[in-house]
Design a protein around this nucleic acid. Structure first.
Lengths: 221, 221
DNA sequence: GATTTGCATTTTGTATACATTGTACAATAT
DNA sequence: ATATTGTACAATGTATACAAAATGCAAATC
């Protein structure tokens, strides 16, 4: 485990600070799957007491990022290729649901916002900082999610996306993939604007399938 | 808030016992939406210290059953009709996904198991204890979930179902509804056996729609 | 009378102490 | 040599103590 540093925010309770810190460390792979999360050593590393650590671990547990065995402690959950496929299978379905709802509910302003976030993405295309680009991608999808006006759907999609956080850079590393991505986004926007549910779902499915391929390729290598 | 009693299980840590107890109390409506969850009073009521209470609340928070405001504490989340519709909208989609996967993956034994759990449900039809019947219904759906062989899907569906726990008795109270339910289950089994995805999804959608109607009727009354 | 200020109380946030359980390893018995 | 048991140690589980913030209310001020 690398050195951990608290992402300090005075307005947040320590448990949330610890939670965010640990989650990020796990998703980035800084704490590896299978590694034990020991309360005392984490408390020392982060300079807080065991209490906030424990409460953070409880949350990680419910998110499925760590596995608890009573009296033995927490270990970072292993993620198998099967797990990832499961996540993507559900996500594909819900993304299709999201664009369907977007087709039905999107206003003129919503379409505008979609186009703007798409534009922002394009502007970042040549940005060497891939993190920026990845976040522009996230924001694009966030706009679609918001349009669905379904809190539960948004919550679940955000969680599923989080599960794949550590692979988020993979599918935008490649220049060719990136232009495909832009094209797919454009297609989706167009379909939503035309309120063409069938097409929107088709493009969306395609979009996720491409991600799946890239990630699967990365994992089996 | 009624008296709470711990659901004691010597093999579970107190935090989990408290978590299960509080969750059930919230879902059953024994602790009402808007009500505050105060650590000290809960600790006294349940006869444990604040620590397990706090850890249980952290989990309830992530499940969306309570809302935390830093330095102010936890209150039971209000559930609006809109929230329920959101839940059902997502659930409908994922239930359809589940039966589709079931059509593709079900073995002979799986079909047998489905029929058995369906039979058990029928046997409980005249059981005056509605809880038993409700649980037989749950077990039927569990079989379908298991057949999908998608952990993430199962986890999300279980969570969504939990959100509706407090209404689970509504749609089996009525004798007429009950026979409809049985018929719908039979239809779904048949479609899965025939590997007829279209029909299976159709029946499944219908099944959820009926629940939605019953619950909506209950709520708007 | 309305508003503000200050204090007491309550409640949550965090740290620490104590209890219990699990683990590793060595010593002993078979 | 293997199995078993006992013991020390380490980690988690639980309780409690202390700190800090929020709340309610009363007194003071305008």
């Amino acid at each position: 485990m690398k050195d951990l540093k608290l992402i300090i925010d005075n307005y947040l309770p320590l448990r949330d600070v610890v939670f965010i810190t640990l989650r990020e460390a796990i998703l980035k792979g800084e704490i590896e799957p299978g590694e034990r999360l020991m309360e005392i050593s984490l408390a020392e590393k982060l300079g807080v007491s065991r209490t906030p650590i424990r409460e953070a671990i409880r949350k990680l547990e419910l998110e499925g990022l760590v596995i608890m065995t009573p009296r033995k402690g927490a270990v970072v959950a292993e993620i198998t290729l099967k797990d990832l496929r499961d996540v993507l299978e559900v996500r594909k379905n819900l993304e299709k649901m999201a664009v369907e709802l977007a087709c039905q509910k999107a206003t003129e302003e919503d379409i505008m916002e979609l186009k703007q976030s798409h534009q922002k993405f394009i502007e970042n295309m040549s940005n060497p900082d891939l993190t920026e680009l990845a976040e522009a991608d996230v924001r694009f999808h966030d706009v679609i999610y918001r349009i669905t006006d379904n809190k539960r759907l948004i919550q679940i999609l955000n969680n599923l996306r989080e599960q794949m956080y550590r692979y988020r850079l993979e599918y935008i590393k490649d220049e060719k993939q990136r232009s495909i991505l832009v094209h797919e986004h454009a297609q989706i926007i167009q379909a939503i604007e035309n309120k063409d549910i069938t097409k929107a779902k088709e493009f969306s499915e395609n979009h996720i399938n491409n991600q799946e391929k890239t990630i699967a390729a990365k994992l089996t290598s």
